[in-house]
Amino acid sequence: MPELELGGNTYEVDEDGFLQQLDKWNPQFAQDYAPLEGIDGELTEDHWKLINYIRDYYEEYGIAPMIRKLCKDCKFKLKYIYEMFPSGPAKGACKLAGLSKPTGCV
């Protein structure tokens, strides 16, 4: 299993770089991972709003939210999601939120 060193901590990740266990996530993981996903500097309030939303949804339903749901509940435009997470909602936002890689053609 690949290991990823971020900010002095070691995390078990899969080969796509997704965290192996949801409960090993912590805010520092997201912040330290951000530059690898093309996000410069500190994560903003909106980044956190999205990350927390995805985590809460996943904990409740065991699946990543639809992009529609995410934009509606967080009140974000779709284009803004890509501005915040250049690698997109599935490969960027879900990864920073500590989810497993979504299944399907992604």
């Binding site: 529609r68 779709l78 599935a90 979504p102 053609c105």
Partner: peptide, 14 residues
Amino acid sequence: VIGPEPKFLAQLLG
């Protein structure tokens, strides 16, 4: 379309 379009890549529907 294929499932990932509504799930994540909704801009393709637009």
